[in-house]
Design a protein around this nucleic acid. Structure first.
Length: 422
RNA sequence: GGAGAGGUGGCCGAGUGGUUGAAGGCGCUAGUCUCGAAAACUAGUAUGCGCGCAAGUGUAUCGAGGGUUCGAAUCCCUCCCUCUCCGCCA
């Protein structure tokens, strides 16, 4: 969420940003109004409390001197009642204010193109050699089925649609890629963590999944937990309610977890094969950084994600998301899309974002400036490096042979232990 | 899951209704001393919110939320968490 003082002092700028995000600006006025009411109540309540405290001290003194204090005690009874009423009202206003603040999106960074939808995203760069073999490449689901490395049918039997079973070299390939990605992250200075796969509501709210994307998460109602839709949630919450030392920054974490997504509302061609599944492995990179250089950290995070695609030799392009297509909590976001030669389309395999202080303020993650002074909110960033199923899809398609085999790229040999599938 | 104990500042730990935001110790920071360091001594050392240009000031916070009271770290209720023993278990 945004800083209430910032909103108070930059109402028009905030509204402008909200509009760019494609959200309704009227909430901003509601926030400002609720904030005014809150401050008035705080003032009233504290004036009364101040008096109460002074008189209570007086009562203590009088009792110590064995004087009669019943008169002022009676008077304070009324004051105490007033305080209770004001506090109750204040609590209501604060609740309203918080819920309104949660409904104000993060503002887009000035470098973000203004736009409404995917068509207005900018292609920043394209990398890689096109597929140059003289036969028509098959989509990954045909290859996978024929090679017997992903069993979609049995996955549906075991759980439901969108839960493929990786089998044999398919399972080994997934594991090899995970290890490769994690090793790359470690080499780039990230500390590997393995977090819980279920989180509580506070954590889910901290990163912005709640209340915004509740429908996308699997819920465990009996224990009031949520299955993680991405490692971002547990990993970013690692430092919730903590004050870090400035010299600790930047802190860089990597984590591989299964990601559970209900994908409510998805249908049709998009969900074919490994394009969109309910459970998948993903290596996520998370950074806690100094506000002064979060945009440099965003670029380097993006390069960290790109590098693994390059090492795999897969064709991809880098998109800068426009204001209307980047999501509620981000200030700036890049997507990496890999080319699926069997489907002749781009598949999103990574999304790299700077949240500035938006998540960190919700989570109350701060650092103590070396020079002294008040703790400041850190900036948080994250990016996938990478999401497995679509990488596997693109890889199978890109490295297929006319006979329907798949040649494993060299860099993975030490991880897979085999060089060809089929 | 059953029985019991307990949750106080960065850490340890005192405190069972009245100048207790909180003794004492450790740690940390600065100063004195020293060629330098250690030791010793001195001082400082939480966070949020409101008001204020600021200095500052008011208020809140002793796991969380309610309640009793003129007044709560201290009493009552609910919840959460930790520890010990038993049970179950990868």
């Amino acid at each position: 969420m945004l800083d209430i003082r910032f909103i108070r002092e930059n109402k028009d700028r905030v509204k402008e940003g909200v509009i760019k995000k494609g959200e309704v600006p009227s909430k901003v006025d509601e926030v400002v109004h609720a904030d005014e009411r809150r401050r008035k109540l705080v003032q009233q309540g504290e004036d009364l409390k101040s008096r109460k405290n002074a008189v209570s001290a007086q009562v203590a003194k009088m009792k110590a001197n064995k004087e009669d204090a019943s008169a002022i005690i009676a008077e304070m009874k009324v004051v105490a009642e007033k305080i209770k009423v004001i506090d109750r009202e204040l609590r209501e206003v604060e609740e309203t204010l918080r819920s309104l603040l949660l409904q104000i999106p993060n503002l887009p960074h000035p470098s973000v193109p203004v736009g409404k939808g995917p068509d207005e995203n900018q292609i920043i760069s394209t990398w890689g050699e096109p597929f140059l073999i003289d036969f028509s490449p098959k989509p990954h689901w045909e290859l996978a089925e024929k090679l017997n490395i992903v069993d979609f049918t049995r996955g549906t039997k075991i759980t439901g649609t969108g839960y493929p079973v990786y089998v044999g070299k398919g399972a080994q390939l997934d594991r090899a890629l995970v290890n490769f990605f994690l090793d790359e992250a470690t080499a780039n200075g990230y500390t590997e963590v393995f977090p819980p796969l279920l989180v509580n509501a506070t954590s889910a709210t901290g990163t912005g999944q709640l209340p915004d994307k509740e429908d996308q998460m699997y819920v465990v109602p009996r224990d009031d937990f949520y299955l993680v839709p991405t490692a971002e949630v547990p990993v970013t919450n690692f430092y919730r309610d903590e004050i870090l030392a400035e010299r600790q920054l930047p802190i860089k974490f990597s984590a591989c977890t299964p990601c559970f997504r209900r994908e409510a509302g998805s249908y049709g061609k998009d969900v074919r094969g490994l394009n969109r599944v309910h459970q998948f492995n993903k290596v996520e990179l998370v950074k806690f950084v100094h506000p002064d250089n979060s945009y440099e950290e965003l670029e380097s995070l993006c390069h960290d994600a790109e590098r693994v695609l390059q090492k795999l030799g897969l064709q991809y392009h880098l998109l800068l998301m426009c204001s209307g297509d980047m999501g509620f909590t981000q200030a700036k976001k890049y997507d990496l899309e890999v080319w699926s030669v069997g489907q002749q389309k781009w598949l999103e395999v990574s999304s790299v974002s700077n949240f500035e202080s938006y998540q960190a303020r919700r989570m109350n993650i701060r650092f103590r400036p070396e020079r002294g002074g008040k703790p400041e909110i850190v900036h948080t960033l994250n990016g996938s490096a990478l999401a497995l199923p679509r990488v596997i899809a693109a890889l199978l398609e890109h490295y297929q042979t006319p006979e329907g085999k798949v040649i494993i790229p060299k860099i993975l040999h030490e991880y897979t232990g085999f060089e060809v599938i089929g």
